[in-house]
Design a protein around this nucleic acid. Structure first.
Lengths: 235, 235
DNA sequence: CATCGTTTGTTGAACATTCATTCAGTATGG
DNA sequence: CCATACTGAATGAATGTTCAACAAACGATG
């Protein structure tokens, strides 16, 4: 049902960025393509989720945030519910694309791949207050909404399976004793937990310290592959 | 403001449990002490949060869930907001009391203490679908509500400091190389992440597998203290 | 190229619903 | 009989949705 939204992401996003860069007054009447409008509204939704939280995010907020009129959301999306699902879908797609790209770029060495995946989780592009807050807003509602629950597995089975495979490979080459599935679960949980803490915004946790903790975990779990055992500054 | 609620927890809770055990028809008029009523409403709030989620939890839900009339919540608590804060406060207190008790019961050995803390996190009494869902509901709103944010640090500074101290102690006695703060952050994040996954309810993650993952982490990070290196079945 | 009609995006006010809160009244225990 | 717990209907505010009117792009036609 939402298949009409996710495609042409790149082009629409570029157009959106361009228009906001130019800061066009956006007069009246028709001005942008359907895809751009939808992205614009989705971005405004993320803004609102981050600023006001899920329960306080209203259609008016989104419309105002996008600088458009009140009825516009029900035109591009049928309902508030569908807007939110589309937003979550958008973030999930973005997240998946991001870690897949990082994995590809890491080459063939499993140890490098694993480290790249972990590092990718803390890239500015996806790991920032705004996005984290939006994710957490959806997490908070996921239990009682099957649709959200399914999509919140953006860090989904596929993602976790990559970790399981990598753990299994490293176990062989390093002669470790752990169970790959168990270790992979720990890793995934650690990453999510760090996200959660980042989002909560306790001062002592920053993107850097979070990544440092994750790397500490890697070197503890795979000492033969990450032997930089916590020297003063382990980049 | 809420100091009137948290005290006398034990007695009031017993009374509540007793009354629900007896399943009294709860006719009309005055029937129970103030504290019992408040606890009853808080429990109903947790139920609703777990079942309907934060954004769909209404005063009517809570009142109905408690089998009382509509206006009752505004009588015992001043507003919906205060009811929710009291509920979160209640869960935070319960959580803190739980891990403190586990810590005390673990004796003097740091390694045992750490293991006890980890295990305590997965006790049925606090780690069940209902409570996890309620926690996550609050997490989802925490970013935009300072009051929640403060209380959601139930796993607060004190909690994390205990982990830091234990990590430091074990580091000395085991000759590890990690930074205690970094490792403690990883541990806390792992526990929260596992909670999050448990709440999401993916089938492959149960309380047992979660605990197993946490223990795997312990034995990876502190191999000299937890040398049961992943034998077939490590209880 | 100008004009006109059609399609499509957009607006903002009206509407219906949901929900927290209030409060006057009732019942109960002491 | 008084203080206190409790009720439930009334109220008003907030909000998602609808829709009739409007405006811009587009295409066809002269």
């Amino acid at each position: 049902m939402l298949e009409t939204i996710t495609p042409m992401k790149a082009e629409a996003r570029d157009a959106l960025l361009e228009s906001t860069r130019k800061n066009e007054p956006e007069k009246r009447g028709r001005k942008a393509s359907k895809e751009v409008r939808q992205l614009q509204l989705i971005e405004a939704t993320i803004d609102s989720l981050a600023k006001r939280g899920y329960s306080e995010t209203t259609m008016a907020d989104v419309a105002d945030g996008a600088g458009l009129s009140r009825g516009i959301v029900n035109f591009h999306f049928e309902s508030k519910e569908k807007l939110l699902v589309a937003t979550l879908q958008y973030m999930a797609d973005e997240y998946a694309a991001h870690w897949r790209a990082a994995l590809t770029k890491a080459g063939d060495d499993p140890a490098r791949q694993l480290q790249a995946l972990v590092a990718a989780d803390f890239d500015r592009s996806i790991c920032n207050k705004r996005k984290l807050a939006a994710w957490c807003a959806f997490w908070g509602e996921a239990k009682s909404r099957p649709t959200y629950q399914a999509l919140c597995g953006a860090r989904d089975a596929a993602y976790q399976n990559v970790f399981i495979d990598l753990c299994a490979t490293l176990k062989q080459s390093g002669g470790y004793a752990f169970e790959p599935q168990v270790m992979a679960l720990a890793l995934c949980a650690l990453l999510e937990g760090l996200w959660l803490r980042l989002m909560m915004g306790t001062e002592d946790t920053t993107r850097e310290t979070a990544l440092q903790s994750a790397n500490e975990f890697l070197s503890a779990a795979f000492p033969r592959h990450y032997p930089w055992a916590s020297g003063p500054k382990t980049a």
